[in-house]
Amino acid sequence: MANGNGASLSPPQLEIDSVSLDFGGVRALSNVCFNIYPGTIQAIIGPNGAGKTSLLNCISGLYRPQHGAIRFEGRNIIGMAPHAIARLGIARSFQNIELFRHMTVLDNLMLGRHIHMRSGVLSGGLYWGRAQREEIAHREVVEQVIDLLEIQSIRKKTVGTLPYGLQKRVELGRALAMSPRLLLLDEPMAGMNSEEKEDMARFILDVNEERGTTIVLIEHDMGVVMDISDRVAVLEFGQLIADGTPEEVRTDPKVIDAYLGREHAIRQG
């Protein structure tokens, strides 16, 4: 929030440059162009099937766009493997929770530290010494994430047994454990009640403010989006129809027509 206007002065952290993505005949993204600035909260909104998730999948390397470039801190990442992109400092959560269900919360978060750790099969098997020191050091980082997200009491619980809202929180925790510079969140509040949503919004703001992490947030709840984002990009049928501050987007006739108008109509009708 705080750095909303100043942000556009610094060079973009992520440039989405004329990205087009086809699935057979379906055009999921067409010539999408916008920039994401360091330290901001960038929302991406749009109706179902607009291509929001597809765009995140392109950024994290799961989909490969046919055209365009995606530059992270100046470097084109299209064609890089997902694990290599993660190493650059890009973390994400998924629309449908993709946790390691049979593992504990702790193990899930420790896996978030994978890219920052070194020990392999041999030193892990021998354990005492190098691997143990590493485990302890990174456990401390993970404990900070646990404190931030207030999940101390479920540390040792198997993730699959947790209620939906907590699983969403653990998934955010796993991404945070990666200490990313860019955090992509795909509908982190979907299916939550208003109290859970408030908590989640608070965590997102905390992370953004305390750690300076850039956040890309896909969210359907307009209240939350307008409240916490610095900038909002609007997708419809794979096309970017608006990109600006919440104010600009709220008053953009195209957006009102295509998206917000419909929402309003539904809400009032």
Partner: peptide, 26 residues
């Protein structure tokens, strides 16, 4: 020991959710 340290956890991550495993950098 292996399965309480980094490499072993990565093995289990591949079993549980291989897409998520890639995205966290495995």
């Amino acid at each position: 020991n292996l399965f309480r340290s980094r490499a072993g956890r990565a093995f289990v991550a591949i079993r549980d959710q291989d897409i998520a495993a890639q995205v966290i950098g495995v």
